[in-house]
Design a binder for these strands. Structure first.
Lengths: 137, 137
DNA sequence: GATAGCTGGTCTAGAAAAGAGACCAGCGCT
DNA sequence: AGCGCTGGTCTCTTTTCTAGACCAGCTATC
């Protein structure tokens, strides 16, 4: 470790190569998609709804630390992007059931891969976190 | 569509089944991990660093719409969780290079699957979004 | 027949997070 | 001398999130 990277050669290069990374990650459509997946509650709700359809109140009990407002909003975002279907039933009081669409299910597969990774490595992450917090103090 | 779900049978059931979802998604270690992946910039920086190591300023130019403050913070979060290694080189001025760790690379694989999904389906998402925005107005 | 509880929400106020931009020290190039 | 580059930090403003009250219409209970 601590070997100087080959890209940094002279002091001249040092200033020069800064300008030449032409990759444009901004304006990328992937970002819009990831942004929505990446919200605080979105992936969690996807996980829940992948298991089975749920009604609003059931979701609220399932994820107790979500505020009602954020649940409404996150569900609407998910619905807006076509991941989730919202069905209103004329019971009394009317009930609303949320379920994954085909698109939602298809994006759940890669999401689940990530979740699986998280399950397998969360102890490594926790260890790294503990080490970092210890060393910086 | 609009068929009443089998789970809602009588008005009595209606009130009863609400209590019986015993799944506990809160306190889940997966959530900590996902939370960090899910940050606004985290996945984007992971993507960039997976391509090659970058120095601070290079990352800033690569992702122009990130504020310097958030770049610092996101990199520190990523480093804290063990995804990213921060190496300081005694050049003048000193340069700092960020690179993925082994752990970071291993989590990049499932992340990339998600990105690939996003690339393939972003037009469907955009279409759904447009439809939603039209219908609600 | 009042009371409390359920339904799926909205509204408001306060807290937390993110963004914009100035500022820092030490050096190189012109 | 003056500007630019290095990787940051500090402060201020704006956006986002949360907690909690509130709503209408119905039901089961007392």
């Amino acid at each position: 470790m601590n070997t100087k990277p080959a890209s940094v050669r002279s002091k001249l290069d040092f200033y020069r190569l800064a300008r030449d990374e032409g990759v444009h990650l901004e304006n990328c459509p992937v970002r819009e998609v990831i942004a929505n997946i990446g919200g605080k509650w979105n992936s969690l709700l996807m996980l829940a709804l992948a298991e089975q359809p749920y009604r609003f109140g059931a979701l609220r009990r399932l994820v107790p630390d979500i505020s009602q407002r954020m649940l409404t909003q996150t569900l609407r975002d998910l619905q807006r992007d076509g991941y989730v279907h919202r069905a209103v039933f004329p019971t009394k009081p009317p009930s609303v059931e949320y379920s994954l669409t085909e698109l939602g299910r298809s994006m759940f597969d890669p999401l689940q891969a990530l979740v699986k990774w998280a399950e397998q490595h969360h102890d490594a992450v926790r260890a790294a976190r503990a080490r970092f917090d210890r060393d910086e103090s």
